[in-house]
Design a protein around this nucleic acid. Structure first.
Length: 810
DNA sequence: GACAGTGAAATTTTT
DNA sequence: TTTCACTGTC
């Protein structure tokens, strides 16, 4: 596309942001203001108009999805942008560290530990503590890394005042370095140290990246801020984009202050505000704004809706979460009957657990849906097993991986034997008393990488103690070692020397590899094509490994016992590997990609389906119609939230509402089941913060909410005071009758009540046959009691349960 | 060393 | 309701 073409569609502020140069730039981009368009256009423009080498542009984001989208859109405007480096913070860190492994005192074959692995590792080092306690510690360590704090930092007390914490942190670091692996925090922290501690690397990076851009800057943490500072040389053009009102990751270290004080950190900063919202109709934007306006710590923006007209958001009060699910289903099904595609809809909730009710309901009603984020493919036992085995092949020091697979299937190698092997491996490196001698950098000395790896390899250690083991363990272990070795040889004899080779090349590497490397993440779409052709590339290897490791047989057995899908899942993993070359580098690349991007290729899901998604996961997305569910105190916002935490919940609410383009629905239940127990709950604080009159209320209004409505809406109050008033029209099913009030039911014949008359026989999908024992209106909702053959008695609201409840006899 | 059974606790958001 | 730690048995 020609620059004047894509520049002509921009508004004046967007144009200014795109063409600005000569000083740091902060773009304050409100929701739906065309932020991504500005970034991608800027990339294209820099290449096409300013003649910048695409490879000298670095743009970092927080999610892989965002990175992919950015690459896609920039490339559409300017094909050469394909060679720019568009990555997540973490994948950029991994990229740089791997290429400078020797300088960073790392093994270039490092794999990445997720929280779970980190907890396992530390648990083994602290056997006296429960997993839960360790999990708390690991969490704090990861927070410390977010803030760039080493075990020696006095500021550590801010995270945990316990003086032991620093020691445990130190211990964790040592164990982690011993495995040769990194955790998420390290990907940022060690990258910062690499750049600040090695002037030649830093200069090289400054020379290469002339432009550094950051998207969603409001979610950056202190370590990422430090990284940004390290990346910005005197000649670097710095441009960050963000919206302080959408900062929602404080809980994991994000610092809103980064964006609030950007201009102070980088003197001369030019600030451009994008305040025209092109996404939502005005009434939707209004309620979102009313809520977030209550926050104090914000830069303050005035979002202007470019789309006039539009309906007021509808607020539905419902008895409980089953009704909430039914309400949503009916709403969506009703719209679908009128031609609205399923895909126009998104159901938003605060916590993942809330998706369940919607899933069951949608399944019943045959409404196609997809759950975003809960794709726990890589969490499955069989997948983690196979990945652990792969990781061990790539890196023989990986203790967590070793422990996970060495005795699976059972080879007579229990924890005691495992401990012996690990001790043996550590003994070689540290001598008998190693405690406390290490710095953060770890024990690797650049010159003897090879020897180090060999000696501390858990496999070498295994071999050394082999003879000392009891017969059963000995044969089991020796068989295991044989499998690993055979597999390693499959990756070519070059495997062992890779580390040295890569280390030697490192210095010259960042220059040319950007292109080759940037290609990998964008190939996700090609995965399917590749996998259909059968095992190719690394897939051959993974297939062999799954079989030879005994994991296939083991999980086959589990499939037969439990009727699970494990073998099929393993096959899926094999397919995923087909994109990578059959080599040790290919394997390492594969593992890194999985660790950093768990959003497996979107399978062959139905493109026309309703989206079920947590509010956090909607960042950057938009839908025509959105239902924000669970608007109750304790759920959203979670209770015990106050001060800054409450402000963050408010921003979450702001994010949720501003996802909607055309229609917004809000649902709030009177009671909710929470771990088995049913509790009555109050409407969300945020509902009270919206101006009365800016939403249309339906359903039985809770007393507290009604009270507020009455005072704010003079003349609209009801005489009865029972809170029965339901303003507005029931969307979806049976709307005409619903408008009628409870007291009117005596005169007017009511088809709904007629259909669900006492004595009728029913069939229910879950409970089987039953008979209606009572039928009555509670406020303005028809309620029936049904006794089932099982003896159970249940209440239903036919309006919402029409599909699962079938009248079988008059 | 594996495994079943018991009792109790605890639930957010994620690169 | 589910998950996890711990206990006792084979």
């Amino acid at each position: 596309m020609k620059p004047d073409q894509y520049l002509s569609v921009l508004n004046p502020e967007q144009l200014e942001a795109v063409t600005h140069s000569g000083s740091p730039l902060l773009i304050l981009a409100g929701a739906g203001s065309g932020k991504t368009r500005v970034i991608t256009t800027k990339i294209a423009w820099l290449i096409a108009e300013r003649g910048l080498d695409p490879e000298s542009i670095l743009a970092v984001t927080f999610t892989n999805k965002a990175a992919r989208e950015m690459a896609e859109r920039a490339t559409r405007l300017e094909p050469r942008a394909e060679r720019s480096v568009l990555r997540t913070f973490h994948s950029f860190g991994a990229w740089l560290l791997r290429r400078n492994a020797a300088l960073a005192d790392l093994d270039s074959n490092f794999t990445i530990y997720d929280d779970d692995d980190a907890i396992t590792l530390l648990s083994k080092a602290l056997p006296a503590l429960t997993r839960q306690q360790v999990s708390g510690i690991v969490h704090k360590i990861s927070r410390a890394k977010d803030y760039c704090l080493s075990p020696d930092s006095p500021l550590l007390a801010e995270i945990d005042p316990d003086p032991d914490f620093a020691d445990v942190y130190r211990l964790y670091e040592r164990r982690l370095r011993e495995t040769g692996n990194l955790d998420f925090g390290d990907l940022i922290l060690l990258t910062v140290r690499l750049l600040t501690g090695n002037p030649e690397v830093r200069d090289r990076i400054h020379a290469r990246f002339r432009v550094v851009m950051v998207d969603e800057y409001q979610d950056s943490n202190v370590a990422q801020f430090e990284l940004l500072k390290a990346l910005a040389g005197p000649e670097t053009y710095l441009c960050v984009v963000g919206d302080d009102d959408q900062s929602i990751y404080r809980f994991r270290g994000a610092e809103v202050r980064n964006i609030l004080t950007f201009a102070e950190s980088f003197p001369g900063t030019r600030v451009v505000r994008l305040e025209r919202n092109y996404r939502s109709v005005a009434p939707i934007l209004a309620v979102a704004d009313q809520v977030v306006a209550r926050n104090e710590g914000r830069l303050g923006k005035t979002l202007v809706a470019e789309r006039g007209g539009g309906k007021k958001p509808i607020l539905a009060f419902l008895p409980n979460q089953d009704d909430e699910a039914a309400f949503c289903a009916e709403l969506i099904a009703g719209a679908h009957r009128k031609g609205c595609p399923w895909a126009d809809w998104a159901i938003l909730y605060r916590t993942n657990a809330q998706s369940l009710g919607f899933e069951t309901e949608f399944l019943h009603r045959k409404i196609p849906y997809k759950v975003v984020g809960t794709l726990k493919f890589y969490e499955r036992e069989e997948i983690k097993d196979a990945l652990a085995f792969l990781a061990l092949v790539a890196n023989g020091r990986d203790e967590v991986a070793f422990r996970r697979v060495v005795n699976k299937p059972a080879r007579g190698l229990g924890e005691v034997t495992q401990d012996r092997i690990v001790e043996e491996a550590r003994r070689i490196v540290f001598g008998v008393e190693a405690e406390g001698e290490l710095e953060m950098g770890g024990p690797v000395r650049g010159d003897d990488t090879l020897q180090f790896e060999d000696a501390t390899d858990l496999l070498s250690a295994s071999r050394r103690i082999l003879e000392a083991l009891p017969k059963k363990a000995r044969s089991g272990l020796s068989e295991f070692l044989h499998v690993v070795e055979t597999l390693r040889s499959l990756l070519g004899d070059a495997a062992v020397s890779d580390a040295a080779a890569v280390a030697a090349d490192a210095a010259a590497n960042e220059g040319g590899e950007g292109a080759a490397d940037g290609g990998a993440p964008t190939t996700a779409a090609k995965a399917k094509t590749a996998s259909r052709k059968g095992a190719a590339g690394l897939a051959i290897f993974v297939e062999r490994l799954v079989d030879a490791s005994g994991l296939l047989a083991y999980h086959q057995g589990q499939d037969e016992i439990a009727g699970t899908q494990r073998v099929a899942n393993l096959q899926e993993l094999v397919n995923a590997a087909s994109l990578y070359p059959l080599s040790r580098e290919g394997l390492v690349e594969f593992l890194e990609h999985i660790e950093l991007d768990r959003s497996m290729a979107d399978e062959e899901e139905n493109p026309d389906s309703v989206t079920l998604i947590t509010v956090h996961n909607t960042k950057g997305l938009e839908f025509r119609r959105v239902v924000v569910t669970g608007l109750e105190t304790g759920v959203f916002p979670r209770d015990d939230k106050k001060g800054d935490d409450l402000e963050e919940e408010r921003r979450l609410m702001y994010v949720a509402c501003t996802r909607a383009m055309d229609e917004l629905y809000l649902t709030s239940c009177a009671s909710r089941r929470l771990y088995g127990r049913t509790a009555f709950v109050e409407p969300s604080l945020f509902l009270f913060e919206m101006d009365s009159g800016s939403v249309e209320v339906i359903g039985r209004t809770p007393r507290s909410y009604a009270a507020r409505g009455r005072s704010a809406q003079p003349g609209a109050g009801s005489a009865s005071g029972s809170g029965d008033e339901a303003g507005g029209v029931q969307p979806g099913a049976g709307n005409a009758q619903a408008a009628g009030n409870a007291q009117g039911a005596s005169a007017v014949p009511d088809p709904l009540a007629e259909r669900w008359r006492t004595g009728r026989k029913l069939f229910h999908d879950d409970y089987g046959y039953g008979i209606i024992t009572k039928s009555f209106y509670a406020s303005d909702e028809l309620v029936i009691m049904v006794r089932f053959e099982t003896g159970a008695e249940r209440r239903f609201m036919p309006r919402y349960q029409a599909k699962s409840l079938l009248v079988v006899e008059d």
